[in-house]
């Protein structure tokens, strides 16, 4: 038997998909930090999080990651993409890269992803509820209505999110993401 007839086949790395998800996680990470400063609902939601709150959203098995948490002053910070050395209190793990693509191209909302076992939550459940609400808020703020409606169960009405607040939070969040 010639062992060379049986070469080791490595799966393709799906580099473009990985880069897309990495960019989306980077933007969302910066947006979490920005919204915590400019949007009243986001401020209120983050205020409920414990002082040692540190959240890692990652794609299994090898990343990318998005880590946000509270610093010593209690402010929300985007802490990059390397979980090493950080004391994570809440994980949201997307089972694979293709599931992440479905979520971040807004073909599937985070709730439907959870319902279909693509998104696993591990850690403090009330904090996870807050994060999912914040993700819905960010999708509403960052995306055009047509696109955001795909990602959330219910697009907020004027009585729930006034146009003035939406546009103010949207502009300020975008400025802080870029700046």
């Amino acid at each position: 038997m010639n062992i060379n007839n049986y070469p080791e086949i490595r799966p393709k790395s799906k580099l473009i998909k990985k880069i897309y998800v990495w960019v989306m996680l980077f933007v969302f990470g910066r947006a979490f930090q920005a919204a915590s400063k400019v949007d009243p609902a986001a401020k209120e939601e983050f205020a409920k999080m414990p002082a040692d709150f540190c959240f890692d959203m990652c794609v299994l098995p090898n990343g990318p990651h998005m880590i946000i948490g509270k610093d010593e002053k209690g402010k929300i910070r985007y802490m990059g993409w390397d979980p090493r050395g950080k004391k994570i209190t809440l994980w949201m793990k997307i089972k694979n890269l293709d599931a992440a693509i479905l979520m971040f191209t807004f073909q599937e909302s985070s709730c439907v992803a959870t319902a279909r076992d693509r998104l696993i939550v591990d850690g403090d459940i009330p904090a996870a509820c807050g994060i999912l609400r914040l993700m819905n808020l960010l999708e509403t703020l960052l995306l055009p209505k047509l696109l955001a409606k795909l990602g959330v169960k219910r697009y907020p009405r004027r009585t729930q999110l006034s146009p003035a607040r939406k546009w103010a939070s949207r502009i300020l969040t975008y400025i802080r993401i870029v700046a």
């Binding site: 985070s110 939550v121 459940i125 009330p126 509820c129 807050g130 819905n136 169960k153 219910r154």
Partner: peptide, 12 residues
Amino acid sequence: MGDGSQFYNPEE
């Protein structure tokens, strides 16, 4: 508001 089962509910 802090209970995880709400996310399996069809309506927000």
